[in-house]
């Protein structure tokens, strides 16, 4: 019963505003100025896949398959999740 555990950090879409407010990104998000790190599309509650705080900035990734694949490539070599 002592298996190692891998935490997956998650936020429910209902709590997204609370998290974004803490990150200082809520106003940008509400104004539609938050873009996908990889494809540049506008991020909305409906198309968001994940958030990646990195090097002092907050990155957003949309649900497009190619953007998710690029995120995984990008994450390889960073600290294990």
């Amino acid at each position: 019963m002592n298996e190692p555990v891998q935490n997956i950090d998650a936020v429910h879409e209902r709590d997204l505003e609370k998290l974004l407010a803490d990150m200082g990104k809520l106003e940008e998000f509400k104004q539609g100025r938050v873009l996908c790190k990889f494809c540049g599309d506008r991020i909305t509650t409906a198309n968001i896949y994940s958030i990646l705080p990195e090097s002092g900035s907050i990155n957003f990734i949309c649900q497009k398959p190619e953007c998710i694949a690029q995120l995984f490539e990008h994450m390889d070599g960073k600290r294990p999740q």
Partner: peptide, 18 residues
């Protein structure tokens, strides 16, 4: 982050799934 909790927890280089 959750509705009931005051705490909001996030870290550098950790993906947060929505």
């Amino acid at each position: 982050a959750t509705e009931d909790s005051e705490n909001v927890v996030w870290e550098e280089n950790r993906v947060i799934l929505v």
